[in-house]
């Protein structure tokens, strides 16, 4: 923690330098997409730097941490220090670390004794499957509820939908998962308790496998969606409510257009843009939900990997899983921002 302002000072000045360059040759650097991508890269650089300092410099060093966990002999301890390059000066360790990250070499897991990358790859795709499924649910239901509440602003429907949304937001994600398991898997016996596939399953066709995975996917995806759907609905409701006061809405009404046409062609279309940006901002929150859900359902993704890394004090794995999650979120928010800026030119000029 003490080190985090330091890397910030290094990097924060970079965008200023870029915008300050006045030669025409470098003008493209000031265009919005370039600035935005650069900002994302700087964020990742800061995360990597933070990781380095936190794990290597803070509580003793990793060798001592492992030694404390597993009672190593002095010789083994020295060997461990050597293998981490801990006898070299800090800045050279740091440079080595950064070049390794660029080459996707994130070290060896303490627990599994294999390259962290080999553990991350399958976990990453499993997490993306889960998050993707949850996103579809959130999108469909969140927008639908938001449109209904925003269009019937001030009515009882609106009030009760707003209250429901706030309640859903207040639910601890992991507990929703536990409750769904208790209800649908234990009491009703409808859906599997945990995992991504049935244990020792033999699939006759790829279709069988797909069905099995989908059955395992239902509850975890629903868990994430239930908690996040409320905030998306509220965002959509509020931006629709803001749009409703615009002049073009009044004009549309004055022209005698049907309410349904006004809602969809003028209201929802214009309210969707701000909703979309804010949704991108909640991606970090979505990852939080995913981590908890993966733990509850033993879904073999990045969140479960992080959880296991915490349990085993497997620092290289913990660090790498955190970095990959940061990469996902930074890439996703960058894409969303770029997409948004193409659709709404006002962003680019600001």
């Amino acid at each position: 923690m003490t080190s985090s302002p330091e890397p910030g000072t290094d990097t924060g000045s970079e965008p200023v330098d870029v915008t300050a360059s006045r030669t025409v040759r470098w003008r493209w650097l000031r265009s919005y997409p370039v600035r935005r991508v650069l900002q994302g890269l700087i964020t990742l650089f800061v995360v990597a730097t933070f990781n380095f300092w936190l794990f290597r410099m803070l509580p003793g060093d990793p060798a001592r941490l492992i030694a404390r966990e597993s009672r190593l002999s002095p010789e083994a301890f020295e060997q461990l220090r050597e293998s981490f390059g801990l006898n070299e000066p800090a800045w050279s360790q740091y440079l080595t670390y950064l070049t390794k990250i660029v080459r996707f070499d994130t070290g060896i897991s303490f627990k599994a004794r294999m390259p962290v990358t080999d553990l991350l790859k399958p976990a990453l795709s499993n997490t993306l499957i889960l998050t993707g499924a949850a996103l579809v649910l959130i999108f469909v239901f969140g927008l639908a509820f938001g449109i209904v509440a925003g269009w019937r602003r001030g009515t009882r429907t609106d009030t009760s939908l707003t209250l429901t949304a706030l309640t859903l937001w207040s639910l601890p994600t992991f507990w929703v998962g536990l409750m769904l398991v208790l209800l649908f898997s234990i009491s009703l016996g409808l859906l599997p308790v945990a995992g991504i596939r049935s244990v020792a399953a033999i699939y006759r066709t790829p279709f069988d496998e797909l069905r099995d995975v989908l059955e395992h996917l239902v509850l975890p995806a629903a868990t994430i969606a239930i908690v996040s759907v409320g905030s998306i609905a509220l965002i959509m409701r509020n931006s629709l409510a803001e749009v409703a006061d615009e002049d073009y809405m009044l004009a549309a009404r004055a022209r005698g257009l049907r309410p349904r046409t006004i809602l969809w062609r003028y209201g929802v279309r214009n309210a969707f843009l701000p909703t979309f940006t804010l949704m991108a901002l909640t991606l970090g929150l979505l990852m939080a939900g995913t981590i908890q859900t993966e733990v509850v359902f033993s879904w073999p993704g990045l969140g479960l990997l992080m959880y296991e890394a915490v349990q085993d004090r497997d620092l290289p794995l913990l660090e790498a899983a955190f970095f990959v999650i940061a990469v996902i979120v930074v890439i996703a928010t960058t894409i969303a921002d770029l997409f948004y800026s193409r659709l709404d030119p006002r962003i680019r000029s600001s």
């Binding site: 923690m1 910030g8 900002q39 994302g40 700087i42 964020t43 800061v46 995360v47 990781n51 936190l54 794990f55 803070l58 509580p59 901002l281 991606l283 970090g284 929150l285 990852m287 939080a288 981590i291 992080m306 890394a309 915490v310 004090r313 620092l315 913990l318 660090e319 899983a321 955190f322 999650i325 940061a326 979120v329 930074v330 928010t333």
Partner: peptide, 19 residues
Amino acid sequence: DMFITIPALPLIIVLAAVL
């Protein structure tokens, strides 16, 4: 903005695990 972008819970987990 950087702090807003970096996913909070993973960061918190990392910090809590190390400290």
